[in-house]
């Protein structure tokens, strides 16, 4: 009885949960790599890298299936309840989100390939800094949410909510800028559409990161915070946590 805080009476159960989470995190790292590689392929016009991203997408799919199977087994054999149930459900959802983010990375890679085909010399260089900027935001969100998941850290999850607004702002700015290209030269329309596709894909990736952060909150707090007003949520949760432990957050 003294070892209450030491995890499940059945230690194998702890190991299984831990293993699934590690699988999800590994999958998350692969997706981050894919997003980075795809964006690089697009901005630097490296076809080989883009092809590689397309190829490696299969691996992400396989990892998703492996995670699903493990979760399936845990539900069937352990009948998780309460926080274990929430964790397993959240991990299952996160896998789905990561898989979708992986698909978007593939989409970006295809955009890179199409741009190369269309122009033979890559996208209009002046549009690419938007891609870089949006990629920076999206990959930071992805990183934050994976860290939050890895450490079950509510503060990191809240950071994701704080920063996700930048995605749409950056996207809107990029759209306004890109429109001016189309007005100047209608022949660039094809290229611009591909770039917009890539930008939209990055926004979606950022959204998925935000979805994962919601799951982290669900595991820890037991409340489903999807479709909630994030500002209120941030205010409520930060306030709740201020007295205890927030030496590491400057604001």
């Amino acid at each position: 009885m003294n070892d209450v805080a030491k995890g499940h009476t059945v230690q194998r159960y702890d190991q299984e949960l831990s293993q699934v989470r590690d699988q999800v995190l590994a999958m998350g790292r692969r997706v981050v790599e894919q997003v980075n590689a795809a964006t690089n392929a697009l901005t630097e016009g490296e076809i080989a890298l883009a092809r590689q991203v397309v190829d490696r997408e299969r691996q992400v799919d396989r990892e998703e299936m492996a995670v699903d199977e493990a979760i399936f087994n845990i539900i069937a054999r352990r009948q998780p309840a309460a926080i274990d149930l929430r964790l397993v459900m959240a991990l299952s959802k996160c896998t789905g989100y990561l898989e979708q983010a992986g698909d978007k990375a593939e989409q970006i890679a295809w955009c890179a390939l199409r741009l190369k085909d269309r122009e033979g010399r890559g996208a209009v260089p002046r549009t690419l800094h938007h891609v870089r900027r949006l990629h920076r935001i999206a990959s930071r969100l992805l990183d934050l949410s994976l860290t939050a998941l890895a450490d079950s850290d509510i503060d990191r999850a809240l950071d994701v909510f704080r920063e996700e607004g930048e995605l749409e702002e950056e996207f809107d700015a990029a759209m306004r800028h890109l429109m001016t290209f189309v007005f100047e030269d209608a022949a660039l329309l094809g290229q611009v559409i591909d770039v917009v596709f890539a930008l939209r894909a990055l926004v979606t990736i950022g959204d998925k990161a935000s979805n994962m952060a919601e799951q982290v909150i669900f595991v820890a707090k037991g409340t489903d915070v999807r479709y909630r007003n994030k500002e209120i949520l941030i205010a409520a949760l930060s306030q709740e946590r201020t007295p205890s432990a927030d030496s590491r957050r400057p604001d």
């Binding site: 209450v4 805080a5 995890g7 702890d14 831990s18 964790l87 450490d151």
Partner: peptide
């Protein structure tokens, strides 16, 4: 102690034997 057990303990609030008995 397993990493996940630690995390869950942290999330649900630290417990010691004193809290229980």
């Amino acid at each position: 102690m397993n990493a996940i057990a630690e995390d869950i303990t942290r999330m649900t609030g630290a417990m010691t034997a004193d809290d229980l008995a």
